[in-house]
């Protein structure tokens, strides 16, 4: 029987073992340093960049872009999802257009975006917002569509006001689906930002990695990749926390 302690330890055995193997492989020359830097080199790069404040600056810039773009795209997607889920008229006017635009990969717009916005902040915000918009929109719309008909009928029979119908029945009923959209779009948020910053930026983690590549400082490139992974994990944890906080009524999330 695995104890509580070993339950916490065992999941980390594999990653720690892999890092140890990686260190040994580079140290013994099995893998050339200019192909893959050793974990110790990456750690040194981390302390150096963290020490001179450069790392914090780039992380902050990237985080701000990610969250601002997410807020803009997410709110528009949520708003349009609500409007089209609640109003047949609104859906008739906009849904077909949105579905057509959705099928264009938003990263395909990068050349156009560079022409429009140059390499300023707007370009990154635009791309992140666009990428984040669709998962939130589609899942909000789907969530509202799939609210239990029986509950809607009950609310009607029991004389719920329009406000009660929305706040007590429709919105809570759609929320699990909305949050699925949020989690999905958090992944797209990082992906879009990495690509945008790698291609055109003068600050941020993607820029840091591209600069390092120019000077063959692979340890910094690996460091940037690891930080992206951590930030992604952090965003996912926040989404899971939101799910647990708002869906505690649902046995599946308890």
């Amino acid at each position: 029987m695995p104890t509580r302690f070993s339950q916490t330890i065992i999941p980390y055995l594999l990653p720690v073992g892999l890092i140890a193997f990686w260190q040994v492989a580079v140290a013994t020359g099995l893998v050339a340093r200019n192909v893959l830097p050793a974990p110790s080199d990456v750690a040194l790069a981390f302390f150096e960049l963290a020490g001179n404040g450069e790392l914090v600056h780039h992380i902050w810039v990237s985080l701000w872009r990610a969250l601002a773009g997410f807020a803009i795209g997410g709110l528009i997607g949520f708003g349009l999802g609500l409007a089209n889920g609640l109003s047949r008229t609104s859906e008739t006017y906009t849904d077909t257009t949105l579905q057509m635009v959705r099928n264009v990969p938003h990263l395909a717009l990068i050349p156009l975006v560079i022409v429009w916005f140059g390499i300023g902040e707007e370009a990154k915000l635009f791309l992140v917002a666009l990428g984040v918009f669709f998962p939130v929109y589609i899942n909000t719309l789907h969530g509202i569509r799939s609210v239990d008909r029986q509950l809607l009928e009950m609310a009607d029979v029991y004389g719920f006001t329009r406000a009660e119908m929305f706040w007590r029945v429709v919105l809570p009923g759609a929320l699990p689906s909305v949050l699925v959209g949020v989690r999905y779009s958090l992944g797209i948020m990082w992906l879009t930002l990495i690509v945008a910053e790698t291609i055109s930026a003068s600050s941020g983690l993607g820029y840091l990695a591209m600069q390092a590549r120019e000077f063959m400082q692979l340890q910094i490139v690996v460091l940037a990749i690891l930080i992206y992974a951590l930030l992604g994990k952090l965003a996912d944890s926040i989404a899971r926390f939101l799910e647990r906080a708002t869906l505690s009524w649902n046995p599946a999330y308890r």
Binding site: Q150, L151, E153, M154, D156, V157, Y158, G159, R168, V169, P172, G173, L175, L247, W249, N250
Partner: peptide, 18 residues
């Protein structure tokens, strides 16, 4: 919908789970 004079009970409880 019966106003407040009448109330309806369905076959299912139809409680709001949230």
């Amino acid at each position: 919908a019966g106003g407040d004079v009448a109330r309806f009970i369905f076959q299912e409880p139809r409680l709001l789970p949230w």
